[in-house]
Every structure is written in C-alpha cells, then in structure tokens.
Computed example of a mutant assay.
Amino acid sequence: MKKIKIAFLHLLPLAGNITHNQQLIEKALTLIQDKKVDWFLTPELAVSGLQFSKKFGTNWINRQPDEWMTNFIKLVKTVNVNVFLGCPEKSADGKLYNTVFVINRSGELIGKQRKISSVTDDWSTSGEFIEPINVEGSKVGIVICADAYTNHVSNTLLAKGAEIIIAPSSWGPGLHGPNGEWEQRSVETNLPFIVCNRTGEDETVSFWEAESSVIKNGKRLLAYQSKQSAVVTFDWDLDRNELLSKEFEVLEML
C-alpha cells in the first residue's frame, strides 16, 4: 500500500484581487505544514478567480514563474508538499493560458497542463499538449474544469499512461453546471477523479453550492461544499487507487 494524504483548497477567491487570493493560498499552505500532506490541490485559476478579466483585465499576467510564484515555490519546499496550482500564464510569444502548474516538494516546477477548452475563457488560448506528469512515481493526469465535458482529454491521458486524474475546477451548479461529466469520465477511463472545486461567486457565476469531490467508478465517494475557504484532507492508496478515509478532515480558514 502506498498511502498518501491529499488536501483540497476549497477556495473563496475574489475575482481580480490577485494579492488577496495569493495570500489565501499561502495561508492554506502554512495551515497544512504539520499535517504531513503529500499533494495540495487548488481549484482552477485560484490565483485570479474565474472571471477576473471582466474586472481587472489581463495586462498583469506574467510568464511563469514570476516573482510571486518563485517565492511561493520556496514556501512549497519549506512545507514539504507537492502542489497543483491554478494560475494564468503568458507564453514567450505573448499568448495567455489557463494553466495548472505542478511544483514538487523539493521546490521544482516539474510540469504544467494548459486548459484545452477555452470556450468560456474569452482571454485564453487553448493548450496544445496533453501529458501526464510524474509526481514521485505516479503518472498524474490533469483535466481542468470544462475539459471534462468530453472524453478527449481524459482518454488521451489514459492512453499516455495516467494512473489518476486531478481535476482543478471552477464549476458551480446551474444552467451550464456539472451534470455527471466527472463521473462519466471516471467510468470510461476506469481512473479516479480527484475534483478540487471552489466556493463564492464571480461576476455572473455562483459557486456557493459547488463541490470538491473524490470520484471512482462513476460514484462520488466524498463531497464537500462550504461558504468560506477551507482545506479538506483525506487519505488515498495510490497502489490500489482506493479511498482510505471515511470522511474529510476539514481545516477552516477563518
């Protein structure tokens, strides 16, 4: 059995308030410092909020790692955890992407996945590459929010050897809310989906009832929603891809 502890940051970000969101992420990371967490997950666009461009524009988006992420990587090393961080980025040719970065516990930026579907992101460019990332011997696939609408991304990750799927999301209930997509993708791939969602609201979207969840074989084994930022943790067996915890441990961020 290869037991690891996984933490969700079920975040209440403020769209466009970059400094506020960065400070919340840092606070959450320090909160788990003594919890022996192995993987720390943030939702999609944790640094910016989903609809930041309507309030704050895109001129602030940098090539990564910028000054803040460089300092954040040092904090990651101090806490001794692997982090999946949702943050916009600018490429060398000036294109903008909705990206999840993977930072290992040694303080190394070991990979990233750019969101493939950009239909709802009027500022971002669709990513071109879909590859699992090796995190301490486990091949981890990343499916960012609406990339779960179809089976393209998840099936590609499966074909390339992914053993587990991380799904950083900003996806709340409503007209275009999740309707069994994560569950269906888990059935098709026979891989667990670890969904890190968020709470709060942006300009036109509400996330108050959005759930972070652990999904396997089409079933939600654990689910969590809240009205404030919180860190929730659970234990997972990587060898057998099985949930070990009966419930989440919740660390509220007051």
Rank of each mutant, 00 (worst) to 15 (best):
L50Q: 01
S48F: 03
S245P: 04
T204S: 14
I6Q: 03
N21R: 04
L222P: 07
P132F: 02
G161D: 06
L254A: 13
A162E: 05
G127E: 06
E242Y: 02
V37F: 02
V143T: 02
W171R: 05
A210I: 00
A159E: 15
D121F: 08
S117T: 10
T204F: 10
G107Q: 04
L75T: 09
K36R: 11
N179I: 07
N155M: 15
K216I: 11
P168Q: 12
V231W: 02
G111R: 08
I130C: 02
C145A: 09
R63L: 13
P65F: 06
K216P: 09
T99W: 08
V231R: 03
G141I: 01
N59H: 15
Q23C: 07
S186E: 10
D147R: 00
G49P: 00
S106T: 11
D38H: 03
Q22E: 13
Q113F: 08
G111F: 04
S117A: 13
K90P: 00
L75P: 04
E131P: 03
I4G: 02
H10A: 03
L221E: 07
L191Q: 02
I32K: 10
L9D: 00
W68N: 01
A28M: 12
K5E: 01
P88M: 05
T78D: 07
S213Q: 04
P13W: 03
W39S: 02
F193P: 04
E26T: 11
E188H: 08
E249V: 13
T78V: 11
N82Q: 04
Q225R: 14
C196H: 03
G16N: 11
P132M: 02
G137K: 13
Q64I: 06
K112R: 15
L175D: 10
L9V: 05
F52N: 04
G16D: 09
K35P: 03
P13M: 08
K160V: 13
I4S: 03
